[in-house]
C-alpha cells in the first residue's frame, strides 16, 4: 500500500513536472499579450520531433557517442524550438497586436493546424518510437517501483523551472517581462523595449514546452504529430487552475492537476463501481477545468481582475 502510494506520487510528480513546463509557456504568453496561444501545444510536439531529428543526425552522420549525443540533441532541440517560437510570433501574431482579441487566437489556431499537418507530411501521421533519454533502471522503494527515467525527468524539469525562476525574478530581462505583463502601455511609455520582452517570452515559452515534449516522448517512448493537442489542453487547464498569468501558479496548477489525474484514474473505477473506467481520465480533467472556472475564475494564485480595470477595450 505504502509502496503503491510512493509509486503513484512519483508518477504524478513526473507527469506534473512535464505539464508545468508547458503550462509556463501558456501563462507567460497570456501574461504579456492576454492571448491564448493555441499553437503552444505544437511547440511541445516540435520539441520531440526536432530532438529526434538532431539525435539521428548526431548519431548517424557525426557518430557522436550516446550520452553526449543525447545531451547535445536535447539542448539543440529546445533552443531551436525557442527560435521557431520567436519566428512564429514575428510572422503570425505581431502584425495583429492592435487588432481584436479574437484575431491572434485565430491566427494561432492556423499556426497549430499548419504545424501538425506540416509534420504529418514530413514525418508521416503515424506515431514513431522515441529513444529514451535516460538509462532505465528500476528501483524498489518500499514495495513500489520508481525508474531512473522518472528521476531524470524530475531533475531536468526542476532545473529548467529554477532557471526560469531566476530569469524572471533575478535578471534584468525578467524585470522587463514582468513590467510588460503588468501594463504594456505603461511599460512602453517608460521606454521599455516591449518587443524585446515579447520575443523573450516567445523564446522561453516554446523552449520549456519543447523540453516538456522531449521528456514526455522519452517517458512514454513514442511521439506523434497530434501529441500536442490534448497535452496542450491539459497544460492550459493547469495554467488556469493556478491562475493564468502567474508563473508559480502554473507550476502549482500542473502538480495539482497531475495528482488529481493520477489519483482519479486509480480511484474512478473503484468509486463508481466500474461504471466509469480509466478512459474517463480526460473527462475528469476538463470537468475540473470547468469547475475551477466557475468557482474561482482567477485560479488559485491569480488575482481577481475588476471588469473596468482591464486595459484592452474589446473582449474580442
Amino acid at each position: 500500500m505504502l509502496g503503491n502510494l510512493i509509486q503513484q506520487t512519483v508518477n504524478a510528480l513526473t507527469i506534473g513536472s512535464i505539464y508545468a513546463l508547458i503550462a509556463l509557456g501558456y501563462t507567460m504568453v497570456y501574461g504579456v499579450l492576454r492571448m491564448i496561444n493555441f499553437a503552444h501545444g505544437e511547440m511541445f510536439m516540435l520539441g520531440a520531433y526536432v530532438a529526434f531529428l538532431v539525435l539521428s543526425m548526431l548519431v548517424g552522420d557525426v557518430g557522436m557517442a550516446g550520452a553526449i549525443a543525447l545531451t547535445v540533441a536535447f539542448l539543440v532541440a529546445i533552443f531551436l524550438v525557442g527560435f521557431i517560437g520567436v519566428g512564429i510570433e514575428r510572422v503570425a501574431y505581431k502584425p495583429l497586436r492592435n487588432s481584436t482579441r479574437l484575431a491572434p487566437m485565430l491566427s494561432s489556431l492556423g499556426v497549430s493546424l499548419s504545424l501538425v499537418t506540416g509534420i504529418q507530411i514530413l514525418a508521416g501521421p503515424q506515431p514513431v518510437a522515441f529513444p529514451s533519454f535516460f538509462p532505465v533502471v528500476r528501483y524498489e522503494v518500499m514495495g513500489g517501483t520508481i525508474t531512473s527515467m522518472q528521476i531524470g525527468i524530475l531533475v531536468a524539469a526542476f532545473v529548467l523551472m529554477f532557471g526560469l525562476y531566476f530569469l524572471v525574478n533575478r535578471s534584468r530581462i525578467g524585470i522587463i517581462v514582468r513590467a510588460v505583463s503588468e501594463s504594456r502601455p505603461t511599460a512602453q511609455l517608460l521606454g521599455i523595449n516591449v518587443n524585446g520582452a515579447i520575443s523573450m517570452v516567445f523564446f522561453v515559452g516554446p523552449l520549456l514546452g519543447a523540453a516538456g515534449g522531449i521528456l514526455y516522448a522519452s517517458y512514454y517512448g513514442i511521439m506523434s504529430p497530434s501529441m500536442g493537442a490534448v497535452i496542450g489542453l491539459k497544460a492550459f487547464t493547469a495554467a488556469i487552475l493556478g491562475g493564468i498569468g502567474s508563473i508559480p501558479g502554473a507550476m502549482l496548477g500542473a502538480f495539482i492537476l497531475a495528482f488529481v489525474e493520477v489519483g482519479g484514474t486509480a480511484l474512478l473505477p473503484i468509486v463508481t463501481h466500474g461504471v466509469l473506467g480509466t478512459e474517463y481520465r480526460d473527462v475528469l480533467t476538463f470537468a475540473i477545468l470547468i469547475l475551477v472556472l466557475l468557482v474561482r475564475p482567477a485560479g488559485i494564485l491569480g488575482e481577481a481582475v475588476s471588469e473596468e480595470s482591464i486595459v484592452y477595450k474589446r473582449e474580442f
Partner: peptide, 12 residues
C-alpha cells in the same frame, strides 16, 4: 496545411 497558412495570411 494550405488552409492553415491561408487562415494566418487572411487574418493578417
Amino acid at each position: 496545411l494550405f488552409l492553415g497558412l491561408l487562415m494566418i495570411f487572411l487574418i493578417i
